[in-house]
């Protein structure tokens, strides 16, 4: 089975983000493999281990995004593709999906796994767009994945619980943070990752990289002060009311 996992390097979330104009600065800042993508890589590795096949990680980003690709390889992926092209700077979600879909098509695929959304842009639409461009089904928000022949069954996380969804391969699956526990790379894995093949094509897609223009960037509004409730014996009930109002319970 050819399992493709899409990965992205994001600026280290533990460091205050810097802007480059109205866009997030991505080069020359400390980057990490998007923590959300680690679940995708782990899911791919587990499926490959259980059902045979290999895992290819596909990424788009500046040259330094190679670090994120290597991290995924050090976890155990077989090979990588990093599409790096100056013309792709500032790509919007749709163009990113076009580029990744083309790169994935060139790699060959039976199953494509992505994180639900990136931890920097949070558009959460790229995987579905890839599925649409490749004309294959997608099943999203998987909190578990089961493979039976060429059928993929997932438990799809919902607000109330989960739905059981079945799709035929080839397909796109997006995984939530609860789907598994990503492994830590071993020292040997880190050393071997340097020797694994990574294809670095230029952009396989021509045309404008974005139809969007970011007009301005504003700070998130400060969170207001909380309400202080003195516990006169009715504290528990008040907490329950508050949670019910917030529709948490």
């Amino acid at each position: 089975m050819n399992i493709v996992v899409t990965v992205k390097q994001i600026p280290d979330p533990n460091v205050a983000p810097q802007l480059d104009g109205n866009r997030l600065k991505r080069t020359g800042v400390a980057g990490v493999l998007d923590p959300g993508d680690e679940f995708g890589v782990e899911a791919g590795l587990q499926i490959a281990a259980a059902h045979g096949g290999e895992v290819t990680v596909v990424s788009m980003g500046p040259a330094q995004a190679m670090e994120a690709v290597r991290k995924a390889l050090s976890m155990g992926a077989t090979k990588g593709v990093l599409v790096s092209d100056d013309a792709l700077q500032g790509s919007d979600a749709l163009h990113t999906a076009r580029v990744l879909a083309e790169a994935i098509k060139n790699t060959g695929f039976d199953l494509i796994i992505s994180g639900v959304e990136s931890t920097d842009g949070y558009t959460g639409v790229v995987p579905q767009m890839i599925a649409s461009i490749l004309d294959i089904p997608s099943a999203t928000f998987a909190k578990s994945i089961e493979i039976n022949g060429d059928t993929v069954k997932i438990n799809r996380q919902t607000e109330k619980g989960y739905d059981e969804v079945e799709v035929q391969m080839p397909c796109v699956i997006t995984v939530t943070a609860g789907v598994n526990e990503p492994r830590y790379p071993s020292f040997k894995g880190i050393v071997e990752a340097k020797k694994k093949p990574v294809d670095e094509p230029g952009s396989p897609v021509a045309g404008e990289s974005t139809s969007q223009n970011v007009e301005s960037v504003n700070d998130a509004p400060q969170r207001g002060a909380g309400e202080v409730v003195e516990d006169d014996g009715s504290g528990a009930a008040k907490i329950a009311d508050f949670l019910a109002q917030a529709k948490v319970i």
Binding site: K71, S74, Y184, P185, F187, I190, V191, K194
Partner: peptide, 11 residues
């Protein structure tokens, strides 16, 4: 590779 491994152990 050692620096990368340090990050893994630290995490």
């Amino acid at each position: 590779e050692h620096e990368e491994f340090r990050k893994v152990v630290r995490a």
